[in-house]
Write a protein that binds this DNA or RNA. Structure first.
Lengths: 334, 334
DNA sequence: CTGAAAGCGCTTACAG
DNA sequence: CTGAAAGCGCTTACAG
């Protein structure tokens, strides 16, 4: 492995100048820079990351702390890894990963300590894992993804749940639906409560009455959605707002089992907009996080924080992404 | 941030001894070690990773090179990340990630160079990506996952496709099935060809004739499986071997559309054993890679290679994992 | 724009 | 079992 010393010697400059020519920030005569770069290229020189990191105090790597469940039971984890990997790569940053299940080996504290990463993206739900919270006190610049009111001292980044839910319900209203029911997620979860609230608000704003039997609490699974829809069907709704896409899939099945069609008889909207929503039959009208955007913003924010760790914590809210597809239409005319 | 120097000073020993006491390999008086550890603990000392890496020549991090498609279109990527993360963590190794789509930013060559990782796990299909192959020549210890005959110079680790396929077909034969048809993946893919070969072999070994119309080539998707099964149904098979689980899902739908039941009328087996196979109705009998085991072995092998890079390349083949579930039974008696 | 020098914080032969 | 010393390969004020 050639070192910077060799590159410098063959270029006829000092190590300092070679370093400046290669890293690009400082002022170096153009001709010198070219010569050094050519020599480095011809030698196949790769700067030693450890040495660079030790001297500069920056590793050029960011870490992601993710609950294992979000990777195994949910498309979210894979999408997030994908997005962050892209965003990090665009800034020439490496990406390290730590999944919260790892008890037997090293803790997140150990694995991400000692300057191995310059910053951290932490999924808010990871804070339920007892090893994770302490790392936020470790002085590593961090961005928290999602909602976590207990840590107003760290930077937050999340998608507007409430406004997103409003979008889909307003869409149903604008199509002319009046009898709109809803299937919610578990109401001990903030996101489920917020989505229900958005439903209530929009209905009220449009002079549409909501009675308790129009709201069915379920569990974010397809089976739960099917069961809930079966119970709502006697009300003869023309549209349903489901608290997530999974339940919308189940609800669609229930509607078909009753001999009805989506969207001819009943329009249906979901929440999340994971890839399955697009390939579903019919493709589901839904709203969700733009995970690519979220990832990009997270890395941008982290880069700012790494450059200036004293930045005051902010709670940044991104707009939700609304996708009108084929599961919604006008209510039946009679 | 406390440094090793401070730990040494407060412990009343030299920096060298403090280092030995903390890393644990070398011989240090037990009492000394205890004292140093206590001091380190009380200071909240974390060794600087860059310094350690620079001095020792080891980063304590391994990298994973994964085709983006395996993460976004397939459960395989997420399962592999999960498994490797576990396995790496058990050895106190960090895990860095590089997805093959990342053109705009840094190449895999740059991101994993300069000693930032001690070793690499590379998905064999990643080699189709032009940036990836050169890294195998870069002198970083690497383990290739899957089959890639073009690089006999690197260590391979893969699951026995052929033996796995044999298991499920033999299972059907042992249940008494004689009219067994097959739906294959695209026959320009090695894995599809191998699975078909296993089918032919088992059939022949058991004196069961295979005619061309009993083999339907498809595309590994549910829709493809449905269409293929619809074409095979006129042959009145009592069992189907599908080249992957996805096609088995589609084939099941085709069977039901024809008014038949799985497994009462037709038994069905798949290949892959991703999580969906277990939750499918009926739960699918299938065979697949044990990704947790594969990951563990990959990290074990990599650790050996890092310790001794001169180890001769081996092609290690792991057994497939067979799961008998509810989609198979005896053929109808008439 | 360039160089000499110090220093980043560890590990590891080499002696003893 | 322990210490003094060298060294890992860079970056970055400080001068000029």
């Amino acid at each position: 492995m050639p070192t910077l010393d060799e590159v410098a010697r063959l270029s006829g400059v000092s190590r300092a100048t070679a370093s400046r020519a290669l890293t690009g920030d400082a002022k170096v005569k153009d001709e010198t820079r070219k010569r050094v770069k050519a020599v480095a290229e011809s030698l196949g020189y790769r700067p030693n990351r450890a040495a660079r990191s030790l001297a500069s105090g920056k590793s050029g790597v960011i870490g992601l702390v993710l609950p294992t469940l979000l990777l195994s039971d949910d498309p979210y984890g894979a999408l997030l890894i994908h997005g962050l990997s892209d965003a990090a790569s665009r800034r020439d940053l490496g990406l390290m990963l730590w999944l919260t299940h790892q008890e037997p080996g090293s803790t997140v504290r150990e694995i991400f300590s000692g300057g191995i990463v310059d910053g951290l993206v932490v999924s808010a739900t990871a804070l339920n894992h007892r090893w994770v919270e302490p790392i936020l006190d470790g002085g590593i610049p961090s961005v928290l993804l999602g909602r976590h009111p207990s840590r107003p001292d760290v930077h937050h980044l999340r998608v507007d749940n409430l406004a997103g839910a409003r979008l889909v319900v307003e869409h149903l209203v604008s199509l002319g639906h009046k009898k709109i029911v809803t299937i919610t997620g578990p109401l001990d979860r903030v996101d489920a409560v917020e989505r229900l609230q958005a439903y209530r608000d929009v209905m009220e704003e449009n002079g549409l009455t909501v009675t308790d039997d129009m709201i069915s609490e379920s569990n974010y699974t397809p089976d739960g959605g099917l069961a809930a829809m079966a119970r709502l069907l006697p009300l003869k709704p023309t549209a349903v707002f489901c608290g997530n896409d999974q339940m919308a899939f189940g609800a669609t099945e229930a509607i078909r089992l009753a001999g009805l069609d989506v969207p001819t008889d009943i329009s249906i909207v979901g929440f999340d907009d994971f890839p399955d929503a697009r390939s579903f039959r019919p493709p589901l009208t839904t709203v969700g996080q733009d995970i690519a955007l979220l990832s990009q913003r997270a890395v941008d924010r982290l880069a700012e924080l790494i450059a200036d760790p004293s930045l005051p914590p902010e709670d940044v809210i991104l707009p939700a992404k609304f996708s009108i597809r084929r599961s919604t239409g006008a209510p039946p005319s009679q």
